[in-house]
Amino acid sequence: MPLLEVKDLQVRVEEREILHGLSLTVNKGEVHAIMGPNGSGKSTLSHVIAGKPGYEVTGGQILFKGEDLLEMEPDERAAKGVFLAFQYPVEIPGVATMTFLRTALNAQRKARGESEYSTPNFLKKVREVAASLNIPQDMLRRGINVGFSGGEKKRNEVLQMALFEPSLCILDEMDSGLDIDALRVAADGVNALRSPDRAMVVITHYQRLLNYIVPDVVHVMSKGRVVKSGNKDLALELEASGYAQFEEA
């Protein structure tokens, strides 16, 4: 059974159709890249998979481990293993990052019927993960993403991904705003999570990221559909020739 199956998905936002019958199948252990021009609907797809309100699904379905994802609340999806690293992570002043991480992790574990982490075990785990991503401890004491640079926000997303150990990771433009060193650290963090039980969907505009996170499949999205799929060479081709050839379609 595929991990994720998006079938003929049609989505509207404020009466306007954004996704016009999008299909995508992702198996365990695979890394997929989605590329496509601005406004083609990449973030929309990631939001609909994560359960963001405000999108109207007018057709098609999304199955996750064979279950109807669209029937689930966002927190149920998270507990079942769906993780979205946001293109624009929000700032939440007054909610300490540590408190948030512990509340979220334990909420997911509780929903799965697992025991909650004790404080010392939790702290140990966060420290390890933070150290591997070069995230200083004092950042974790601040409000969620408050005063974080663009790159730090993205690294905080990868930190959460490593902590929650989801089975499907969707990374929406993880590379935007990262300098070359930060990109390598974040990509190493992502690669460390590659496993036969986990799949990744990497949304990006730049082939460069795919040198670090090498995909099994590359999809081109245009105007709310997947218009072409191929292997990693497709990304190089796009880098050379742009999206113009697909826009006509």
Partner: peptide, 25 residues
């Protein structure tokens, strides 16, 4: 703020838990 609520819910917090954190803040 709906976008803050969604961020928290996407991380596994129930609606009430997400509201509670934002209210405390």
């Amino acid at each position: 703020d709906e976008s803050l609520l969604f961020y928290l819910r996407a991380r596994g917090l129930s609606e009430k838990e997400a509201q509670a954190l934002l209210i405390q803040a």
